[in-house]
Design a protein around this nucleic acid. Structure first.
Lengths: 347, 347
DNA sequence: TTGTAAGCGTTATCAC
DNA sequence: GTGATAACGCTTACAA
């Protein structure tokens, strides 16, 4: 253990019989310091292996050069991609990233916010819990001048900074494509009613059907709690209709995985008897036999890195003494339909 | 913008005409402070919404209550699971986690280490780059009393703290199982020669074949650069042998995905004409038609959370004034073969 | 029971 | 050109 304390500016000062301020200035090439002194200081600094203690500087500056990211669940590829987006943006701005997984628990989310506040992050990026419907824990941060930018799962409020994704564009492409392929009966396997996303998907689904002059048939709209057993029940309900749909929009990829299993169990063939299109997109679909026809790409990386840019803008603006009041930073990215190359069952 | 500065201990002191130390003590229920004073202090603190500025405390304590995690690539489910393991362990110890992805670049790894050192993390958890073969950048941390624990991808050195996974146990189970199923020709699709993991897998493969009294046939050992085209070439080489293997051990799941594609292209059937077993394990195999027979589970979460425990032990020990010199903390977890339920092609 | 002062490492302000 | 001092917010001997 090299328990010898790290050299400080004072240590150097003492060795040279100069003041700490002189050392500090010398090390910063302050013009007022004589060349000789500067050289002597540098030499000793070098010898001692001196390096400025940034934590002291940060403390003085009242900054941490760290931002916090709160996401629901890293095991979802969507969010790990998002985290990478944040990290890349942060690196470019010389910021560090501390991370917290809310695991879709509102209580955890609150706790993480609190903890990050205690650590005085310079800002926060947040993708909300499914449970979150109140936002005081974020409002509190104003007091600490900690700006927040939300992404993807954003509050239903207008007075916030956010980057989100518009699902309509991708869905419209998807349904239009299905129609072009001849599909007339397109079902919807939706999520639990209490989720905002569920209502949203329903509305979009209906809107896009209408745009394609298709009728909305309530029998073809089913929902699931997202539990596996329930996913199976939902798809089976569709399949057992007198006139089952020939295609279905699915709440997300995890639900879809179960749907595909169920279809196979009945002996039907995915992409022949029934085609799927789902939200989000697992990176491995392209390797799978029964991949959906397409996914609605929601650009995790793009959303999160843009949110990070926003955040750094806010941070800089707050630091600027003659900053004018910043307008809200808000952006919506259009989703896009991404087709998978040649679902194998069709070949 | 609530630009009014946050209340400090001084502010409270001023209001009450007492000293800052009194306030500090009162807020900590110091026994020497009179009840009345304590109450008055608390009241004002309450009114002002005072909260201790932890960054100041941390600075004084010369601690950050933050650890750094360096991993190659979050898009690999293995590492995002590992990160979750760290986060869970950290939460239990009231620590924060800052994250850095080396993206398998040695230069990036060095830079991240440097940056985390500047931020004075209390310790680091590291899973090395494929490129890393020198360790000065970690040795430097001793100077700053920043302990390091490696996990999964650990240095080839004995004087370090680490948690790793022993591949032999799982591989032995796997090959034994293949043999029990009647397989006599078991190939190996290995990685690039420059990776330590490649040599390791080769040795284990040979060892396990021998344990099962099977001959080692050089023709059945192929390798790939991990690039897609190369993966295809490797599997095709095996398939085009006069006597192709009936089973193969594959370097990792990503290589295997390509192998499966290739097998299908030739019209052969996975799990009938050829079976696979691979290292690591993608969370979605169980949903796939042509899943490998089994994966060698390497316990990302367990490794990383145990590494985190080690780290906290080291941190505590270093903080303890009368700490005896800590012995190295090292642990090896046995890998295990994990079978997938009923590969569908066989049903 | 309370106040004073020093200290964590650095920098900015003012004085000489 | 360089030095002293204060300040960031807090804790803790040591005094009183």
């Amino acid at each position: 253990m090299s328990n010898n304390k790290l050299p400080t500016i004072k240590e150097i000062a003492k060795r040279l019989n100069v003041s700490a301020s002189t050392v500090s200035r010398a090390l910063h090439d302050h013009p007022s310091i004589g060349l000789v002194t500067t050289m002597r200081v540098r030499k000793v600094a070098q010898e001692l292996g001196y390096e400025a203690n940034k934590t002291a500087i940060f403390f003085k500056e009242r900054k941490t050069y760290t931002i916090g990211v709160i996401i629901p669940d890293l095991s979802e590829p969507f969010f790990s991609a998002a985290l990478t987006g944040v990290e890349d943006a942060a690196e470019a701005s010389n910021y560090n990233v501390i991370i917290g997984q809310s695991l879709n628990s509102f209580e955890r989310e609150k706790k993480i916010v609190e903890n990050m506040k205690d650590h005085r992050v310079d800002g926060m990026l947040v993708s909300l819990t499914k449970e979150t419907s109140t936002y005081e824990h974020f409002d509190n941060l104003k007091r600490y001048n900690i700006p927040v930018v939300f992404f993807d799962r954003v509050p239903s409020r207008k007075d916030i900074n956010y980057v989100a994704c518009n699902l309509v564009s991708g869905m419209l492409q998807a349904i239009t494509k299905l129609v072009a392929m001849g599909h007339k009966r397109i079902g919807l396997i939706n999520g639990p009613a209490k989720l905002a996303a569920t209502l949203q998907r329903l509305e979009i689904y209906i809107k896009c059907l209408k745009e394609n002059d298709l009728p909305v048939d309530q029998d073809m709209i089913v929902s699931t709690t997202l539990a596996k057993a329930d996913n199976l029940k939902a798809i089976n309900k569709l399949l057992s209709l007198e006139q089952p749909p020939t295609a279905a929009i699915v709440f997300n990829d995890y639900v879809l995985l179960d749907c595909i299993s169920a279809v196979k169990t009945t002996g039907l063939v995915v992409n022949k008897d029934i085609s799927f299109i789902s939200f989000a997109n697992l990176p491995i679909w392209e390797y799978m036999d029964s991949a959906p026809l397409a996914s609605i790409e929601q650009f995790a990386y793009k959303q999160s890195s843009m949110a990070a840019e926003f955040l750094f803008k806010l941070i800089k603006n707050a630091a600027d003494p003659d900053s004018t009041n910043m307008p809200l930073l808000q952006h919506i990215i259009d989703s896009e339909m991404v087709e998978y190359s040649m679902p194998k069952q069709i070949l």
